[in-house]
């Protein structure tokens, strides 16, 4: 029972980070009409930023601000490129995927050359915090608990904004029907740029929670996270925000339970095999595609 609780805690905290990532990805897809493959790379760069900031200061608030600022800046920097691509005649959404893949390659190579000489970085104990619960082999650190609380709060706040504020309604309106959104007078370009901003904030939050949960970052992390984010978004149904919420949490829990029973890297394979099977059986996703 205790082991199960521990797994549930780490599963939920991991899951809520996946939810943040998938939601950001879906928001880009729905509002800005792009496939942002480089999003997880932005998250990892933001994690590196926190790591650097930790060397300079131990003021947690400053570190969090630094991480979020970098994530927002990178997200906004990519906006003109994608806007230019979307404006080219005879070009569909695949072109944004290809370009974002190029951006991801650049970011990854920069990380593996320049950041800490390409070596993985470990976050210091003052960031992760000591263990507060331990059941035999499984321990729960302060960071993990914080990731859980932070993740749940971030996801709730985001969904509240999306469903209860005007700006959120604009996002959903553009996502659902661009023409109708234009007709009620929603400024499409401005709202689209704003979605890059919001996605940057979501990315920064995921980076901070991630660094607390797993306590390390590496240039290859982005690729791995990208794969999970994309697989969850397809399993849930592309552009389906509710589906992403459910499937993101589910993946986190499945992974946490798999870690408890299966050794190391095989536990990752289990999650991917399950997702691959779901995609092959139901290519349109469990909850239906929304684009």
């Amino acid at each position: 029972m205790e082991i199960f609780i521990a797994q549930l805690i780490s599963g939920l905290s991991l899951g809520s980070i996946y939810v943040l990532l998938v939601t950001g990805f879906n928001l880009m897809l729905l509002v800005a009409k792009i496939i942002q493959f480089a999003y997880p790379q932005i998250v990892v760069i933001s994690m590196y930023t926190c790591w650097w900031a930790l060397k300079i200061t131990s003021n947690k608030l400053l570190i969090i601000i630094a991480g979020i600022t970098v994530s927002v800046a990178l997200s906004l920097l990519s906006e003109p490129i994608f806007r230019k691509i979307s404006s080219i005649k005879d070009v569909d959404i695949n072109a944004t995927f290809i370009a974002s893949m190029g951006i991801a390659m650049i970011m990854m190579d920069v990380m593996s050359h320049s950041f800490n000489y390409g070596f993985p970085v470990a976050f210091p104990p003052k960031w992760i915090g000591g263990n507060i619960l331990s059941f035999g082999l499984i321990t729960i650190s302060k960071g993990q608990l914080f990731a859980l609380v932070g993740g749940v709060i971030a996801v709730s706040v985001f969904f509240y904004l999306l469903y209860r504020t005007n700006q959120g309604r604009f996002f959903r309106a553009i996502a659902e029907n661009r023409l109708a959104a234009e007709l009620v007078g929603i400024p499409i370009t401005k709202t689209s740029i704003f979605s890059y901003f919001i996605v940057g904030i979501l990315g920064g939050f995921s980076a901070i929670l991630f660094s607390m949960l797993i306590g390390s970052a590496s240039p290859w992390l982005g690729e791995f996270v990208a794969l999970k984010m994309l697989a969850v978004s397809i399993v849930a149904g592309l552009g389906n925000l509710h589906g992403g919420l459910v499937c993101g949490l589910l993946l986190g829990i499945i992974e946490a339970i798999a870690v408890g029973y299966i050794s190391g890297s095989w536990s990752n394979v289990i999650a991917f095999v399950i997702m691959l099977a779901v995609i092959l059986i139901k290519p349109e996703g469990l909850f239906g595609t929304k684009i």
Binding site: F272, V273, L276, P283
Partner: peptide, 23 residues
């Protein structure tokens, strides 16, 4: 399964398979 799936679904099926094979 993916003969007529949308591009992005095929992409993910490929990426996941590559990862599984590699692991």
């Amino acid at each position: 399964a993916i003969g007529k799936a949308p591009c992005f679904t095929v992409v993910i099926v490929g990426l996941t398979s590559v990862f599984i094979v590699k692991t």
